[in-house]
Design a protein around this nucleic acid. Sequence first.
DNA 1: TGTATAATTAGACAAACATCTAAATATTAT
DNA 2: ATAATATTTAGATGTTTGTCTAATTATACA
Lengths: 96, 96
Amino acid sequence: MNSLFKALDDPTRRQILEMLKEKDMTAGDIADAFTISKPSISHHLDLLRQANLVISIKEGQFVRYSLNTTVFDELIGWVIGLSEKKSAKKKTTKSK
Amino acid sequence: MNSLFKALDDPTRRQILEMLKEKDMTAGDIADAFTISKPSISHHLDLLRQANLVISIKEGQFVRYSLNTTVFDELIGWVIGLSEKKSAKKKTTKSK
DNA sequence: TGTATAATTAGACAAACATCTAAATATTAT
DNA sequence: ATAATATTTAGATGTTTGTCTAATTATACA
């Protein structure tokens, strides 16, 4: 959960996710979309991978990155959990 | 959006949100739940307020903090937007 | 086998961040 | 008015983070 929020707390990384939403891309193609250096992008991709937000597959000399949407379930679950505020307080005891 | 992700990228701040989910609390009560200093908690509360995740109301000499769930809609919208991956690509042109 | 291309790793550096103590502000009570 | 309590602001400090260049690893091609 920590690595997830950390990964999302950066505009470059969020932009990468939005690019990958459209189509899979190689590390080089992703880097070309930005003005920052390739190693920096590589580092961003590493953090996204650690958070399980992307999956990387080596294809010959290239590495193809794709969005992993499964993590979003966890994120949405967390947000919804918080949204269920104190209003309409439920008993913890099971109702018969 | 940036301030939102930044605010969520800290375990202490997320824990504060979960406490406020249960009930409103004063700054002091929140600080008492942690081992870190009051000024540090005050700073965390400031970031949460900047992100609109909490609302603060001064009540006499106390400041009562409460969770603001409206921002979660925006967050969930963002996540769902990303989840709608490339599969089943839709035309941008309106269907008649 | 050597060279070009793709990507990552290593190490350095400045900016941002979490934390602290001390001081300031605001409110309540004596 | 003075003292006590609640909270924030100011300023300092160590750590984490984003970025860079240079070097390394791995694959493809000629």
